[in-house]
Amino acid sequence: MNNNTPNNNLTIESLWQFSLQYYSMREIKEACLNLQNHFHGNVNLLLALKWLDEHRLTFPSSQWPQVIQSLGRTEALLLHFRELRRKSKQHLPESLYRDSLQFELQLERQQQADIIDIIHRIELSKVEAPHLVDDYCHQLGAEHLAVIFNKQRL
């Protein structure tokens, strides 16, 4: 991380709290699910990028591969578990289904911890015009969703 950029606010807990609050907005939740289901986007990454945009922080485009690679440890497990949970929903008792949702949330939180880990190792700098959400949505061909994400701020 750039020595001129304070990182005391860039913690897993602050990202997690931001994510819970931001994702709780109906329009954001719908846009996130659209990004995930139709554009194969990663919601945790999108939330982390929005969080960095809110802090007016960015990283060089050359570091996108490192940021994407931070998802590697949990992405396949999360995708498989999510699919299994969805398929099992009608066959599971309500309590077991709730437990599976809690486990999925733990996987989501671990993925965010992995993202925070890479954020602390890449070069961050202040920016006047946040653009990480725009960049990510553009990479996925989901520019129209960036409009939704950018108009909602915390």
Rank of each mutant, 00 (worst) to 15 (best):
E123S: 11
L57R: 01
Q111W: 00
D114W: 01
L105K: 14
I122D: 06
L52I: 02
I116R: 01
W64M: 06
I119K: 00
Q66K: 01
W64G: 00
S61G: 13
E83P: 01
D117Q: 10
F103A: 10
P93H: 10
R121M: 07
Y97V: 05
D99M: 06
H131M: 05
I122C: 06
L78D: 07
L77C: 14
D99H: 08
E83M: 12
A113S: 13
G141M: 10
I116F: 04
Y97C: 08
H138C: 09
R56T: 07
I68L: 15
D134E: 15
P130S: 04
Q139C: 13
I115H: 09
S125H: 13
E123I: 05
L107Y: 04
K89F: 06
E104A: 01
T74F: 03
K126F: 10
W64I: 07
V127R: 08
H91T: 05
Y136M: 06
S62E: 12
E54N: 15
P130Y: 04
G141K: 06
F59H: 02
E123C: 04
I68R: 07
C137M: 09
S100P: 00
E94A: 15
T74E: 06
Q139L: 11
Q63M: 08
Q139P: 03
V127L: 08
R109W: 05
S88T: 12
S62A: 13
R82I: 02
R82N: 12
S61W: 10
Q110S: 14
I115E: 09
L78P: 00
S95N: 12
L71V: 02
R82T: 10
K87L: 15
F81L: 14
H55I: 01
V127C: 12
S61Q: 14
Y136N: 02
Q90H: 13
H55A: 08
I118T: 05
E83W: 06
R109V: 03
L96Y: 11
R86Y: 12
L79C: 09
I116Y: 02
L57S: 02
R85G: 05
A76D: 15
V127G: 04
L78V: 09
F81Y: 14
L71D: 07
W51P: 01
Q106T: 11
R56W: 01
V147C: 05
I116L: 10
L105P: 02
I119M: 09
K87W: 02
Q106Y: 11
Q69T: 03
L71H: 03
A142Q: 03
E128S: 12
S100Q: 14
V67N: 06
V67T: 09
H144T: 11
Y136R: 04
